[in-house]
Amino acid sequence: MANPIEQFKIQPLVPLKVGGLDISFTNSSAMMVLSVCLITLFLTLSVRSRALVPGRWQSMAEVFYEFIAGMLRENVGSEGRKYFPFIFSLFMFVLFGNLLGMMPIPVIGFTYTSHVIVTFAMALVVFTGVTVIGFARHGTHYLRMFFPEGAPIATAVILIPIELISYFSRPFSLAVRLFANMTVGHIILKVMGGFVVSLGAFYLVPGVVPFAFLSAVTVLEFGIALLQAYVFTILSCIYLHDAIHMH
């Protein structure tokens, strides 16, 4: 049985080094580039005809656009409009990373969202951005986030540490949620796939059971790919809301 961890291994395709910094083009990088290309092609080619009554591809592009625009409008309000391109890019990047990771792509097949460094970097950008926006809009008043107005002063001892922990754990929970979901899902798929092969090779019938399970889990994983992209984006929207409107 293949090692279920092996699929997360990064393979440098073009080793590069700039000033002692390793910037090798790896299978992960290739998937990121592929994602960007596919997202751009999908969104530009689908609306090329600018049809009044959209076709399948165009309505799909419009659905993504309006889904994210609506999410931002509902969670952040009209002030969120200028962050729309960022939130949209974030959603598409995570979504395509998750979905392309489910595809059996030869040589470069890889799920970059299953790498904690990638998800953490994205979460940290969201966290830093949100914090900067919060201080820019509210100044030192933003510190009220950690001790809400009207709370009795005696509760500060408990409240402030709790609020601080919850605030600073945001990037970690955001990063770990996506990374863990992707990693575990892919491990389960690999393990089940291994069962199908090993059991199916010896006995035809027992292989059917893990195969059925594998099929179900595959469907579930596609659902999780969509859901985690949604969760990552909506949490970013909620943090943005907190920064703009406070509590």
Partner: peptide, 27 residues
Amino acid sequence: FFAPQLFWLVLTFVTLYILMTSVALPK
């Protein structure tokens, strides 16, 4: 592989952001 991961993440994401703001979303 943290360094190449981060490098390519920044590169591709910034590219995506620029492509979205200048091409896809306005369209």
